[in-house]
Amino acid sequence: MDRRTVIKNLALVIGGAALLPSCVKNSGGTYIPLKNISITADQEKLIADICETIIPKTNIPGARELNLHVFVLKMLDDCYNKKDQQAIMKGMDEFNAMVQKKYNQSFGDLAVKDRVAVLTGIEDSQKKAAGAKPHGKRLKPQKNMNAPPLDTFYWAMKQQTIFAYTTSQFFMTKQIVYELVPGRYNAHFPVKNLKTV
């Protein structure tokens, strides 16, 4: 990462941190209207920080710039049942406690490399626990609601952040080209002619 990018990222983090509290309601709730789960401003910030760690700004926009955490919250609120939501919330508490114990700091105060270490640590430990089973055909992270709450929380965050990113307008117009109207079917198409991205 070059210096200019570091400075830009830093500015964004500071800017984001400065911006958030002004949007928070007096009650301490989020400014995003949620129906089924209740999220504090701190929790919303944590989710935004995790999203940005999963999909960081590089030379193209990351989670914060694409506002992915708003969509992630909407999915957590609308697309999980109550039991799963409770597991996710419990996992979020465990996540905070784990980070606090290990670093004596909150996730949001960690340097980027430590944030990455926290998340990959959960992912790697789970892979070991699973006996490093080979992946099935579909490699996408799936809902895994019978896992311990910390893992449940992590995979929900990862799955929904990836879903938010890969179905965002930015991704579907600039990173891949989603075609609403293909207007063709070539049944016999050379791989070498596929558009490279």
């Binding site: 990455v116 990959t120 992912e123 990836i162 990173q175 991205v197």
Partner: peptide, 21 residues
């Protein structure tokens, strides 16, 4: 076949690139 391992820039790239299955 996209790559979904880990987090960060590599993951971002894995979501776009990948070999055909």
């Amino acid at each position: 076949q996209h790559k979904y391992d880990g987090v960060g820039a590599n993951l971002k790239e894995g979501l776009v690139k990948g070999d055909l299955s």
